[in-house]
């Protein structure tokens, strides 16, 4: 069964068209990867799926678990199990990370009919996850993302992914700005979340994250359209040869 179905999706920023007819299906349990040159619309795609008001859907349909996704508010999409790990996680001065995490976990658990976590549940669960992600415990005490290094911010995103347990995780360049050790920790954090009911859509420029994961499909986005899809070998080929040969092939 397809968890996510995108049909003929056109999206613009202001008057500028970015996505020009995307068709994409992600079955339950699969990991798909979006690659492509800068400015091809990769971030636009995941931001639109998450419901950012900066983007306008001009036409097309998106179904998530059979439901019309585009009719839902961002928080409703989150309640139904859609998660976006941001490329640039925002800082929220004054708001403690622990309070923030507990609040979002309970907001989502409530809508799923699950019991809310009290302070003790949260503490024991988050400590374990923090260790898994190789994060310092004091990051819970600091304000959300404030003064976090680039790597800490990305780990904090995956920490939230692990606490929220979504059905679909959109990861927007989660690997950028990570050193080799951090990359491995983050990849393990993602990989161990995979199961038959959870799907992933990754945006990345590099093969190196994919070395740690086992993606099912690779899609190449160029000029707002998916120009090529293939298995994991496609990513390795792109790593070696870049995008030009593919784009030239398209034009031919």
């Amino acid at each position: 069964m397809n968890l996510l179905e995108i049909a003929n999706l056109h999206v613009s920023v202001g008057d500028r068209p970015i996505l020009r007819g995307i068709d994409l299906e992600v079955p339950s349990g699969e990991m798909h990867v979006i690659m492509g040159p800068n400015g091809s619309g990769k971030s636009t795609l995941v931001q639109t799926l998450a419901g950012s008001e900066a983007y306008t859907v001009q036409q097309g349909q998106v179904r998530f678990a059979g439901e019309n996704l585009l009719g839902l508010k961002p928080e409703e999409r989150a309640h139904r199990g859609l998660f976006l790990a941001f490329q640039y996680p925002v800082e929220i001065p004054g708001l403690g990370n622990a309070l923030f995490l507990r609040t979002i976990v309970n907001a989502v658990r409530k809508t799923r009919g699950l019991p809310e976590w009290d302070a003790l549940d949260f503490l024991s669960r988050s400590r374990a996850e923090l260790e898994q992600m190789g994060m310092k415990p004091e990051l819970l005490e600091r304000a959300v993302n404030q003064g976090f290094s680039g790597g800490e911010k990305k780990r904090n995103e995956i920490l939230q992914l692990r606490l929220l347990e979504p059905r679909l995780a959109l990861l927007d360049e989660t690997d950028s700005g990570l050193d080799i050790d951090a990359l491995r920790t983050v990849a393990q954090g993602i990989e161990s979340m995979r199961d038959a009911h959870r799907s992933f859509l990754l945006v990345t420029h590099y093969q190196r994250l994919l070395d740690h994961l086992r993606p099912d499909r690779i899609h190449v986005l160029a000029n707002g359209q998916i120009v090529q899809s293939g298995d994991a070998d496609l990513a390795r080929m792109l790593e070696k040869r870049g995008y030009d040969w593919l784009l030239q092939e398209q034009r031919a």
Binding site: P74, A78, P89, I104
Partner: peptide, 19 residues
Amino acid sequence: YCRQRGLTEEEATGLIVNG
């Protein structure tokens, strides 16, 4: 960011203000 994590606009504002 907060709404993507499941909070309504008002919950998010309340949380940020209380912080």
